[in-house]
């Protein structure tokens, strides 16, 4: 703690327990965004291996055909679905859609912007991501 600072830093962003599901969605959105960015870069590198000819391409592709490779792709599927679903919710919210209407607040001041529509959107994104991951696992690990 310093006189000029007193900021929590990354720890404050990564400690979502105090503020409910919306803050957890915020953290997941950031993490999945970074994960997908990492995957995108890796994907560009992976597909660039086609320049090494068929042998090089098959060699690199074999890396994704392992158990670890499949688990990584399952994670990517989950990140992609959650980021898409929650992203749509946030984009609508950013346009002022579904955040309630201004009104004289009454105690205990439940914020209208944190309403059930957004909570349903967050939980739906998590459930959809879980279902997509299970489907991905069934495809990749199934017979």
């Amino acid at each position: 703690m310093t006189q000029d600072d007193n900021k929590e830093g990354i720890k404050g962003m990564a400690n979502p327990g105090r503020y409910g599901i919306e803050r957890i969605a915020y953290l997941l959105m950031r993490l999945t965004g970074l994960g997908l960015l990492g995957y995108f870069i890796a994907h560009v590198y992976e597909t660039s291996n086609i320049l090494r000819g068929r042998m090089g391409w098959d060699e690199f592709l074999a890396m994704t055909q392992t158990t670890e490779g499949h688990l990584f792709l399952v994670l990517v599927i989950g990140m992609c679905v959650f980021h898409t679903g929650n992203g749509i919710r946030i984009m609508l919210g950013h346009g002022g859609v579904g955040v309630g209407k201004p009104a004289r607040p009454d105690y205990p001041y439940d914020p209208a912007s944190q309403n059930y529509r957004h909570k349903i959107g967050i939980y739906s994104s998590i459930v959809l991501a879980a279902v997509a991951m299970m489907y991905g696992m069934a495809v990749m690990f199934g017979e």
Binding site: R18, Y19, G20, E22, R23, A25, Y26, M29, R30, I90, G93, H94, G95, G96, V99, G100, P102, P105, D106, Y107, Y109, P111, A112, S113, Q114, H118
Partner: peptide
Amino acid sequence: HFAGSCSQVCPKGVDPAMGIQFLR
């Protein structure tokens, strides 16, 4: 990024997150 924590802690029911989204 519409985390909404500002609105959850407001002791006067201002709901800053709502205002910010309308502003955006």
